[in-house]
């Protein structure tokens, strides 16, 4: 475990805290894509099936449980308590394409053809594009609350920090070789490119995030 990886994990946890804060503080899930949240739950469930077969560390296991639990909870809140505030009309991205993309690549790129490996590969490719419905929603509405923009930023930062961790591990761990993880992770980070730019610009002006329409 190096510092980049640890900061990446922390950034991921912080993003979820920010999302829950946003929902509680505004008592609404306006501006949050239910589709992206559902995809994340699918990502965590398919990736962390190995909870039952492999033990890496207590830290890893607890984080896996935390990610599954919190993403289930967010989805639960959006579907029950705050359902009235969900902005369905702006959450129109067609996720069939994203799931199809992940299925095709999961069948083409696994390390070995076992159920767990294929599902794990599926989760990596799906995670790489799961933010698209959220970014699309932001694009169509043009702006979002500060907490929502911080949430998306922390979520993007997480994979960017992982990418630095991969470079570090590649340099210092002779056997470390995870090409699928790297390519999917870099794709994931690249999708945030525009968002990062407008986020940083809006923070420099001390204003809330607005996208050009």
């Amino acid at each position: 475990m190096n510092l980049f990886r640890l900061c990446g994990d922390l950034s991921h946890v912080i993003s979820i805290v920010l999302l829950l804060l946003k929902i509680r503080a505004t008592r609404s899930c306006v501006g949050i894509s239910l589709k992206t949240q559902a995809l994340y739950l699918l990502v965590f469930v398919t990736r962390y099936l190995d909870l039952f077969v492999t033990f890496i560390s207590l830290y890893n296991s607890l984080m896996k449980v935390l990610f599954i639990a919190t993403s289930s909870y967010v989805l639960y809140l959006m579907l029950t308590k705050y359902r009235q505030t969900y902005d369905k009309d702006h959450d129109t991205f067609r996720i069939q394409f994203l799931v199809g993309f992940a299925i095709v690549l999961a069948l083409l790129t696994p390390h070995r053809y076992t159920m767990l490996e294929v599902l794990w590969t599926f989760s990596l490719w799906l995670e790489s594009v799961a933010i698209l419905p959220q970014l699309f929603m932001l694009q169509t509405t043009g702006e979002c609350e500060n907490l929502t923009s911080h949430y998306i930023f922390a979520l993007g930062l997480y994979r960017a920090l992982y990418a630095v961790n991969w470079v570090y591990r590649y340099l210092f761990e002779p056997d470390y070789w995870q090409p699928v993880t790297w390519v999917a992770g870099i794709l994931q980070t690249a999708l945030y490119g525009d968002f990062f730019y407008y986020y940083v610009m809006s923070k420099r002006r001390g204003k809330k995030l607005k996208l050009p329409t």
């Binding site: 994990d9 190995d50 890496i56 890893n60 990610f67 070995r112 470390y176 070789w177 995870q178």
Partner: peptide, 10 residues
């Protein structure tokens, strides 16, 4: 073999 099957990241 390589460490590829070792998934110690999240």
């Amino acid at each position: 073999s390589s460490k590829e099957s070792e998934k110690d990241e999240l």
